[in-house]
Simulated assay, not measured.
Amino acid sequence: MSTHDQCIEACQRCAIACERCLNAMIGRSSDNDCPTCCRECIDICLLCAQATARGSRFSSAICGLCADACEWCATQCEAHDHEHCQKCAEACRACVETCRSMAA
C-alpha cells in the first residue's frame, strides 16, 4: 500500500473514531477539550483524505495541520478512561504518524 493510501485510510479511520467519541460524549462533562477536539479533528481528517486522494498541491501542508490537530485530540482524549476516548486517541496517534510522513 502506498504512503498516500495509508494516509487516506488513517485519516478516514481517525474521523470515524472521533465521530464515535464525539457522539458518546454528548451529555457528558469533560474537564478538557474533548469533545471539542474531536469536531476539529473530524473536519481536518476528512479534508486531508480528500486532498491526498486528489493529489492537491496543498496536501503536504494539510497533512501537517492534520497531524497537529490529531496530536491535540489524542492528548485530550487519552486523558479520559472511557473506551471510546481511548480508541479515539489510538486512531489519532496512528493518523499523526502517517500525516507527519506525508508532510515531510
Rank of each mutant, 00 (worst) to 15 (best):
C21S: 05
S30Q: 08
R13Q: 11
G27L: 04
C73T: 06
R54W: 07
R20Q: 13
A74T: 06
S29G: 04
C34F: 03
A17Y: 02
R20A: 12
A74Q: 13
C70K: 03
C77D: 04
L65K: 08
C88I: 09
E97A: 11
H82V: 07
D81A: 15
C99K: 00
S30R: 00
E19V: 02
F58H: 12
A49R: 15
L46W: 00
T52S: 13
T75M: 15
T75K: 15
I42C: 01
H82Q: 15
C95W: 02
T3H: 14
L47F: 01
R54Y: 04
C88H: 09
A17V: 03
E97T: 13
Q86P: 04
Q86N: 03
S30A: 13
A49V: 11
D43R: 14
C66T: 03
Q76W: 03
A104Y: 11
M1T: 05
Q86G: 09
A24V: 00
A91N: 14
A67K: 04
A53V: 01
R57C: 06
A24M: 00
E78V: 07
E40M: 02
A89H: 11
M1Y: 07
S59Y: 09
N32E: 14
T52N: 10
C95L: 05
L47E: 03
Q50I: 02
S56F: 10
E19K: 10
A15S: 15
S2W: 06
C73D: 11
C66I: 00
C7L: 10
C63Y: 01
S29L: 06
E97W: 06
C66L: 04
R20H: 12
E97Q: 13
T75C: 14
C92P: 10
D5C: 03
C70D: 04
R20L: 11
E83T: 14
H80R: 01
C37L: 05
M1I: 05
D5M: 03
C77I: 01
D31R: 12
R57I: 10
E9W: 01
D43E: 15
A91C: 13
G55Q: 04
R57G: 13
E40T: 00
D31P: 07
A79L: 12
S101N: 06
E90K: 15
C38K: 10
I8W: 04
C45Y: 06
P35Y: 00
S2I: 01
R20C: 09
V96A: 07
G27P: 06
A74Y: 02
C18A: 11
E40G: 00
A49D: 14
S59Q: 13
T36N: 11
C66F: 01
E90Q: 15
G55Y: 04
S56N: 14
